[in-house]
Design a protein around this nucleic acid. Structure first.
Lengths: 352, 352
DNA sequence: CCTATTAAATGGAACGTTCCAATAAATCAA
DNA sequence: TTGATTTATTGGAACGTTCCATTTAATAGG
């Protein structure tokens, strides 16, 4: 049954006693073909075990039906959620998204992008790896391929971005911490080569300033954006002369790491040290203690990114509006009041 | 700079003053070309903003450099780890893996497989969705495309499988539970349309039998293989006339769910009810309490699957040996001894 | 019955590569 | 110098589709 060489439309044509053009028309669901002929052809297709060669087709057709999704860290559940959101909308548009992981490695990213382009994707949705060079997307842009950045952006790039309102999210979270009585705050994780980092840190700083926290009391500890990074950040923070009592973490992974490190030191997250995360991944709700976090609706952002991409492809443009998604703080159990504040007059003795 | 129509090797040829064949040769890194000519061509490639059309090339060449990775649940961190393992080895072989998610949906899976085939992938690594029909891979097999199943298998299929030793893993875990004094055990999650389920359940049952647990005391509660499934399983188990004191869970997600449900009822996982997971995802170690689980070395299995695939492609065969990966039980804090056993003579009064 | 119109099916060129066979240029042996 | 050999380069025919321009067949109008 399995003929050695793979079947082409010519084989189908012979089998069905029609011309290759007729077969092609049937394959495309054209209404020009008489129904009986069409079903005869369809039977032949089945019989010869035909598989459509999209590469050959794309040689003539303008655009393919696949779009590439380039993600910087597949093991972060956050990105899986993003991916799932995108898939929902692409599926109903008859588009197949292929996901590729860059593992936060710009070199790998380069390869992956190249490969995706060579494959003839119709568009690219990218969450760029840390340390991506400014020129990394020049090739793609000059090729006129639609690209949208999801979650992350590059400095001075004209590529549209779909991302949550990082500044506001961080502001909200920080204000919450301050409202709980904390005066010595720290920002954990991330690094300055990430635009998102500056946005979140900016929100953190603004909240500190408007709520009257002295600049010197708003600490910053950079680090990896992973659980491991969170552990490291906490260790660093606790060795400080005047250690903080609350942390806003770059993302939930960092927050989980920080909580873990607290436990290792016999401290209880929430009671002994307040932690707020960012992203609100599914785990946040189920953690012990449940993590207070800034919900960004990752699946929703994924859907949005997909829609924008669809529109770009359709209108064959490479430009689109940025979309800044609403955020909201989900308060759970990981940030109680500052304990020391309860034992002293509030606001006193905080400046170093 | 960005010429409207995309550049082809002819454009490069004109630019460099050579023939298209020369360009092709350079593109393939052939040693037949004089170095100076080659670099002249390479410059032209750069100048015209050329992007290689792999679809066109594959029309002549036997095989592409992309392999498809079809995963049933991208949000399960376990699969992300598997994917990462595969990527490591494919990368060094110059192969780009494209990941597609089926979200445990056989229809979606069908689409995804079709699309991947049409794209001309060189091979497929698949963790089949629950409820995959036996014929789902017939098309692919008759096309002679190499396929390997990872983690999951289909009943009566000749497709090679890379999976952990599920039977043994379950046996080990169950024996551990019994060793801790538990006599009323339950198996949580999964369903009988999964071969893995039967394997793990088989190990569970065998351990019960050899360790002298009455058949009636080895309970089974089927359910989704997710956190939510675990919650449901636990609820069901606790409403039983004579509830179990320990559970082996189908996977870690189910275990996390079960622990969560215990907490909701004011019970402490480990102390009040023993839980063992399966897969040992990264979270297991960091959970509260840390989850005892069967480690399967997912990244290692991913690497193995990739190697097998590489060999199949190379030797253009569609057959390969199954690979059953070693497992080991990682004991943490989620399963203490049976409390009741401490208050009674061991082994008495357990049969219903 | 002839012509105009519509419907259905078809042949051929094109898409961007690879690869083989052929040519052209350079080197060598005699 | 001539012919043989090696080294670089090239033209042309595939590869499996799509799509346009045609052809053929069927139907309708007069």
């Amino acid at each position: 049954m399995a003929s050695r060489a793979k079947a082409t439309i010519f084989d189908i044509a012979r089998e069905a006693g029609v011309s290759k053009s007729t077969v092609s028309l049937v394959l495309q669901g054209s209404g020009l073909i008489r129904p009986e002929t069409a079903s005869k052809v369809r039977k032949a297709i089945e019989d010869v075990g035909y598989v459509y060669n999209r590469g050959a087709a794309n040689l003539r057709k303008a655009h393919s039906n696949v779009i590439g999704m380039v993600i910087n860290d597949l093991t972060n559940p956050f990105f899986a959620e993003l991916a799932v959101g995108m898939e929902r909308v692409f599926q109903s548009a008859g588009i197949v998204p292929f996901i590729a992981n860059t593992a936060e490695n710009p070199v790998r990213q380069e390869e992956v992008l190249k490969s995706l382009m060579e494959q003839g994707v119709a568009g690219l949705i990218v969450s760029p790896a840390r340390g991506t060079t400014p020129g990394a997307f020049r090739r793609i842009e000059t090729a006129g391929l639609p690209v949208v950045f999801a979650m992350r952006r590059l400095p001075e790039s004209r590529i549209p971005v779909i991302a949550p309102d990082n500044h506001r999210g961080a502001y909200l979270a920080t204000a919450h911490l301050i409202g709980k009585g904390h005066r010595r705050l720290v920002f954990f994780g991330g690094s300055s080569d990430l635009v998102v980092y500056h946005e979140r840190l900016g929100g953190f700083r603004e909240a500190c300033e408007t709520q009257g926290i002295a600049a010197g009391d708003a600490l910053v500890v950079e680090g990896e954006t992973s659980r491991r990074g969170g552990i490291a950040c906490l260790e660093t923070a606790l060795t400080m002369a005047e250690p903080p009592t609350a942390a806003l973490c770059f993302n939930d992974a960092v927050a989980f790491g920080a909580m873990l490190a607290l436990r290792k030191r016999g401290l209880e997250p929430g009671a002994d040290f307040a932690i707020v995360g960012f992203d609100d991944v599914a785990e946040a709700e189920h953690y012990m203690p449940a993590l207070t976090s800034v919900a960004v609706d990752s699946a929703g952002l994924g859907e949005r990114a997909a829609h924008v991409m669809l529109k770009m492809i359709q209108s064959r443009t490479t430009r689109a509006e940025d979309h800044i998604g609403a955020v909201n703080l989900v308060v759970r159990e990981s940030c109680g009041p500052d304990r020391r504040a309860r034992n002293r007059p509030a606001g006193s003795g905080d400046a170093a």
